[in-house]
Design a protein around this nucleic acid. Sequence first.
DNA 1: TACATATATTATGTTATTATAATATTGTAA
DNA 2: TTACAATATTATAATAACATAATATATGTA
Lengths: 98, 98
Amino acid sequence: MNFELMQSKCEEVSGMMKAIAHPQRLLLMCHLSEGEKSVSELLELCHISQSQLSQFLTRMHREKLLNVRREGNFAYYSIADKNMTKLIQSMHKIFCKN
Amino acid sequence: MNFELMQSKCEEVSGMMKAIAHPQRLLLMCHLSEGEKSVSELLELCHISQSQLSQFLTRMHREKLLNVRREGNFAYYSIADKNMTKLIQSMHKIFCKN
DNA sequence: TACATATATTATGTTATTATAATATTGTAA
DNA sequence: TTACAATATTATAATAACATAATATATGTA
């Protein structure tokens, strides 16, 4: 792998790191790695205000990391980026096993 | 895994994510994942000012992510946290293969 | 001693993140 | 139509991150 490619990869990937470089956003991603969840469910799972949760979700959706599916009054979010799912799974192995 | 544990893990791990949530710091870590490097070497590898490089290294050393070894005029940095090394390797597999 | 080289520190202006409060929107049900 | 519940948006104050310039320290060498 040449250096220029390495640099541009880092540029790209560090953006994804930023998304999970926050305790609550990482927790969100961990919960979402187990499947789609509604905003209300996420609100119960993470100790965070409704406003901030919505802001985080909106932001990560804008960054193409999350999908939304709206059904009536509810919004269901899921991880949009396959690599993000893989990453969370790797992190789980590394940091949460033993 | 219970939720409280999950939360405290996320608290801890998101700190590490922060360290690599920056293009140049991630690039630094990638280069360091191949072994110890001197500041001068890193300065050549990353396009970054001497001051900022030193600040980044100092910061990550303070956060126990890096080790320093001083030899005469030079300082050699290496990754101190085994999990960080594992993480960088996983990321390499996920983002840089194909 | 004087000077060069490698690295670290300090200071500072700019921009981005975070947290919170307040308000708005939209869909559903009475 | 009114009211409520779920979610989104806007505004804003506090804090942290970033980039850069300037200066300092420490080691090695002529």
